[in-house]
Every structure is written in C-alpha cells, then in structure tokens.
Simulated scan of single mutants.
Amino acid sequence: MTHAVQPGQIYRSLGDPYPYREPRRIKVVGKPVTTPGLYGFGKVQVVTVTGTGREIRQRRIELSQLHATDTTETGAKRRTGYALETA
C-alpha cells in the first residue's frame, strides 16, 4: 500500500517501546526525495516529537519505514516502522 508522505504528518513507532517510557512519534519536516540520482534518494527528513510536543533529533529515514496503517495487506500487525497517526 503506497501513500503520499507530506511535511507535517505525524507517525508513531510500531515496535516495542522499550527502552522508552512512551511510544516514539516522529514528524515529517521535509519533502521526500524521490528523484533518482539526488542525494538522499528514497529518504525523508523527520524529527522526534516528545510527549510535550517538542521537536528533537532531526534526521533522514527511509520512505519504506513509513506506513499508512499498522497492518499489512494480509491483515497481520506490523512490528517495525512507523504508522501514520496524523495526516
């Protein structure tokens, strides 16, 4: 399932929250680089969002880690990556 990744979207971590106290959330802050041959191809700039809403730890992650839902096409729960929380 492919979905459009846009700046401002918030995703939540699908993995075990250990060693963190609350689930990890990230926010997309840059446009995805989808043009072959450009630096960062297939990646997007994100920041970690804390429980208070503070944005920390800016970095690039693979677009393949961002999912529209927390289930696969077959209905199984995903165990890795990030699921869309807020469009």
Rank of each mutant, 00 (worst) to 15 (best):
T74V: 03
V49T: 06
R79V: 10
Q58A: 10
R54N: 11
G51T: 08
A76C: 02
A68Y: 13
Q58I: 00
A76D: 15
T71S: 11
K43I: 00
A76P: 00
G42E: 11
T52A: 15
G53D: 06
R60Y: 10
D70K: 09
L63Y: 05
I56D: 02
V46F: 01
K77N: 03
T71G: 01
R57L: 07
F41C: 13
T50L: 14
T71M: 08
S64Q: 06
I61D: 03
T50D: 12
E73D: 13
R54S: 12
R78Q: 10
R59Y: 04
G42R: 07
V44S: 11
V44A: 14
T52Y: 05
A68D: 14
A68C: 07
T71K: 15
R60K: 14
H67C: 07
F41E: 15
T74Q: 13
T48Q: 07
R57I: 00
G75C: 10
G51K: 14
R79N: 13
T48W: 01
R78F: 09
T74G: 02
R60T: 10
S64A: 13
K77Q: 08
E55M: 08
T50Y: 01
R78K: 14
H67A: 05
I56V: 15
T48D: 09
I56M: 10
D70W: 10
K77R: 12
V44F: 06
I56Q: 06
G75F: 06
V44G: 12
E62D: 14
A68G: 11
G75M: 10
T69D: 15
S64R: 13
T74M: 03
G42W: 02
G75Q: 06
E73L: 12
I61K: 02
K43R: 15
D70G: 14
V46D: 03
T74W: 06
E73G: 05
G42M: 03
A76V: 00
L66R: 05
E73I: 05
R59P: 01
G53P: 01
G51V: 08
T74I: 03
Q65T: 08
R59V: 04
G51S: 15
